[in-house]
């Protein structure tokens, strides 16, 4: 799924983003989303970070969760809002144009679930560390952090192969949109350090898309 990088091109035309992503991933991403969303229960307070066109937001709202969906791209949010309206979920969703840097304004222990689909790989290292710590703070005790994102394969050969394809796409995407993404590295370790316990962890066949559910246990066991 090195091709996921190409989504940066579709982001310039949000109307075509959904179709583009489906084309790039052959529907695989949808399956991942469907699977990860089983952790969301009715009435849960959910935060969707980097909601984009609302793929995860709508799935969560469909399960009657109360969702706050944030993204920094107002045009992607427009598409998401339109989709929510069409599906008749808009009353359960609050869309806000804000980035992870503003998570500091969210009160402690507010959410049952934090969703993050293909967003963490777009953050700088600093933003990623900040985001993970903030998510840990704003989740209720035993709250769930659900992440779907690009990752670096574990096995050396696969990594080499992916690195090769990815660098070609990287150049291409960079030339056209001046942007790029960073596949997550050792993400499991990282969030365990931030006080999470990994509940489930899955990779796709080519080992470069990860689906992860982590439960907040707190860095301090007394918490």
């Amino acid at each position: 799924m090195s091709t996921l990088l190409l989504m940066k091109l579709f982001e310039t035309t949000p109307n075509r983003y959904d179709r583009g992503i489906r084309l790039l991933t052959g529907g695989q991403l949808d399956n991942f989303y469907d699977r990860v969303i089983v952790h969301v229960k009715e009435g849960d307070r959910v935060l969707d970070i980097g909601c984009g066109t609302g793929a995860l937001t709508l799935r969560a709202a469909k399960k009657r969760a109360i969702v706050k969906a944030i993204d920094i791209n107002p045009r992607m949010l427009d598409v998401a809002r339109a989709k929510a309206k069409k599906a008749d979920f808009s009353q359960n969703i609050e869309f806000v144009e804000m980035g992870v840097a503003e998570l500091g304004n969210e009160p402690d222990q507010t959410y049952d679930v934090v969703l993050c689909g293909l967003c963490l790989s777009e953050l700088s290292k600093k933003e990623l560390d900040f985001a993970v710590n903030e998510v840990s703070r704003i989740l209720k005790p035993k709250g769930l952090f659900l992440v779907i994102d690009e990752t670096r394969p574990q096995r050396f050969l696969r990594r080499l192969l992916q690195g090769f394809f990815r660098s070609i796409f990287k150049l291409f995407v960079f030339l056209f949109s001046g942007t790029t993404t960073r596949a997550l590295k050792n993400f499991q370790d990282r969030i365990e350090k931030a006080g999470f316990e990994v509940v489930s962890f899955q990779l796709n066949k080519s080992q470069n898309l990860l689906e992860l559910a982590a439960r907040k246990i707190g860095i301090n066991p007394d918490e």
Binding site: I72, M98, G99, A101, F130
Partner: peptide, 24 residues
């Protein structure tokens, strides 16, 4: 990685980026 004017005009440099720089 774009100059300030082009980036701001093209929507690649927004208040989110400034807030991120200030906050982090």
């Amino acid at each position: 990685g774009i100059n300030v004017w082009c980036a701001a005009a093209g929507g690649h440099f927004t208040f989110h980026d400034v807030i991120s720089a200030l906050k982090l």
